[in-house]
Every structure is written in C-alpha cells, then in structure tokens.
C-alpha cells in the first residue's frame, strides 16, 4: 500500500513536468495561446482567395533590458488568403557590445496563429548584431485560405529578447570574429 501511494506521488511529480510538453502540444494543436509554428512552412499549390482580404498588423516591443531599436517597416498590411507576402523589420544595436537577439511571436486572436504560415522568418533563429550594427530582417508569410470566416483582422506581436547569455559556443566565436 505504501509503495503504491509513493508511486502515485512520484507519478504526480513527473506529471507536473509532463505538463510542460503537454501544454506546448495542446497549444500547438488548438493554437489557443497565439504561438506560431517555429519551422518554415512550404508554399506549394496554395490557391489565392481573391474574394477575401485580411488585415494583418505587426507590433514590436523589446523585453526589459534589451537595448535594441526594433520596428516593423510595414505596420499594417492587407492580404488575400493564400497570397505570399514579405514584410521587413528594422533592428539596430545601440549598445557598445555585440548582442544576440531572439524574437518571439504572439498572435492575437490566438486561433489565427494556426493559419499564419511563415515560409521564412527572423524569429526562427538567434539574430546577432555587433555594437552599433543595424539590419533589416525579413519575414515571408501567407495566410491559410482556411482561416475562419469571422477573422478578418489579426495582430502579430514580436517581442525581442536578449539571449546573449544563452549563446552557443559557435555563435560566440562567430561574434568575436566578425
């Protein structure tokens, strides 16, 4: 009996940790917390639906402690579902040291996240910038024509984090060599 009960305890401790991947999988399937796919989508034989237009708005912010300037070049764009579009984001590192940034997207309303397909995005990778360096980061996407009828407007917000502390060895070497 005691052993059985201890097994429950150990199992529930494990369950607490299992909630982490479960949460991610759940959110990925249902798209309810606005997380987008972290891998590139393939744009292939997608039919453009000219009869609908969807407004997509881009917001940017930097997390506390991240000194970069970060702006969407296109703040609002009207697209037809299925049509491939590219937007660009401007970044500049005003600090006197190299910094690695990582952008995390969040879509609102959350369900739209499932229908935002990115074929290319700066948010897929760490973005290093030397001191004073600036860059334009592209993001290429299309809206899945299956997007529910009631969504005609959604917002994509990127939050830029300073992840220099978590950089891999190769990234560190690359940064000092440039």
């Amino acid at each position: 009996m005691v052993i059985k009960l201890v097994t429950i305890v150990v199992g529930m401790f494990g369950f607490g940790f299992a909630l982490v991947p479960l949460y991610d999988v759940f959110c990925e399937i249902t798209g309810i917390n606005g997380k987008t796919d972290n891998t590139a989508a393939v744009y292939e034989s997608v039919i453009v639906d000219d009869s609908r237009t969807v407004t997509v708005e881009f917001l940017t912010r930097t997390h506390t402690g991240m000194p970069w300037k970060f702006e969407a070049q296109t703040q609002r764009i009207e697209v037809h579902p299925g049509e491939l579009n590219t937007v660009e984001f401007y970044v500049r590192n005003p600090a006197s040291r190299p910094i690695i940034g990582q952008a995390i997207p969040s879509v609102s309303p959350g369900t739209a996240a499932l229908y935002l397909n990115k074929t290319e995005c700066f948010c897929f990778n760490h973005q290093p910038l030397q001191a004073g360096e600036e860059a334009l980061m592209p993001m290429q996407f299309y809206v899945d024509p299956q997007l529910p009828e009631d969504i005609s407007f959604f917002t994509v917000q990127y939050t830029l984090f300073d992840v220099t502390a978590n950089a891999t060895e190769t990234e560190k070497i690359a940064m000092t060599q440039r």
Binding site: L5, I8, V9, V10, G11, M12, F13, F15, G16, F17, L19, V20, A165, N166
Partner: peptide, 22 residues
C-alpha cells in the same frame, strides 16, 4: 494531497532551475 503536492514540488523546482540553472 498526494495528487497535488508533488505538482507544487515540480513547480518550485522549475522556478529553481529557471532562476539558477539556465
């Protein structure tokens, strides 16, 4: 208690590793 106290233990452990172990 035996169902949820371990979950609390898991939560504080995650806070600990997030804060101190990256």
């Amino acid at each position: 208690l035996i169902a949820v106290m371990p979950v609390l233990a898991g939560a504080v452990t995650m806070v600990l590793t997030d804060k101190f172990f990256g």
